[in-house]
Design a protein around this nucleic acid. Structure first.
Lengths: 142, 142
DNA sequence: ATATTTGCAAATAATTTGCAGTCGA
DNA sequence: TCGACTGCAAATTATTTGCAAATAT
């Protein structure tokens, strides 16, 4: 089992390298955590979840690493909350849905991502489509 | 001139009433300011701009009013910044473009707003489409 | 050996809250 | 008069910064 984890870490390291990110241990840990969740966690959630197994981890490093991963394009910053960033290691174009009741953020891969014609003169580096509403679970009476 | 301003204020008040917003003076002032700008200002910008002509205005009130206007649907919160809200009194569906160099947020009315098929079970109350990139002005060498 | 990364504590920034006073119907 | 609204100062939350120590190549 230990072995499997080691292998995963190595693969994650290779992936990070391809993004031009030096695979330092905390970076690998954070990236791996993001790959393994669909919850679009906040920096604080990542810190809280990882801290027990990585006691040396600091909040500053979480922020540093996330900013670096976003800059290098390995991770997407999801700007769907009013004043807090969420992060997503799935960099394929897809739509996010935020339930205004349970506050959860869902991926909507089943909805076609719109092809937009960017006007002359503008050049786009990223497109975010965010829907807000009520999720099936909350709709059916909590 | 004074007269014209009075008339505008009255019209704005009527509009607010239609949204179920009691047209108190600060609310009218903030809403009118938002109607008159295309800059998607932040709460702080609104406060700074309005303070000179409305010395009694407080930051708290700006936040209160903006939250209230958003709740009532008179104003849209634009979640395009990492950790600060912008506001838009134009509630027609349209796309926002943020230039990562000059930080300005543009309306892209010329781009068709996508029709999305929301999956069964979900119900949507709002859809935001945010593009990030470089604007024509910054592209042509600052 | 040198540049990069980290952790801590303090700083900053945006927003909310508690509460007492004020305004509007 | 009564409930809604306001302003102030303090609190809260998310994030960044300065700097010294640790680490990677």
């Amino acid at each position: 089992m230990r072995e499997i984890k080691k292998v995963e870490e190595k693969e994650t390291a290779v992936t990070l390298s391809r993004f031009g990110v030096r695979p330092l241990s905390h970076r690998v840990a954070i990236y791996q955590y993001l790959l393994g969740t669909k919850n679009h966690p906040t920096a604080d959630t990542i810190y809280t979840e990882l801290k027990p197994s990585l006691p040396s981890l600091s909040r500053t490093t979480v922020y540093n690493v996330l900013n670096h991963l976003c800059e290098k394009g390995a991770v997407r910053r999801v700007t769907i909350e009013d004043h807090e960033s969420r992060f997503d290691a799935d960099i394929r174009d897809h739509i996010h849905f935020k339930c205004s009741q349970c506050q959860q953020v869902f991926d909507l891969f089943e909805v076609n991502f719109p092809r937009l014609e960017i006007p002359e003169g503008f050049s786009a580096t990223s497109v975010q489509v965010n829907i807000e509403g009520v999720c099936p679970h909350c709709k059916s009476g909590r």
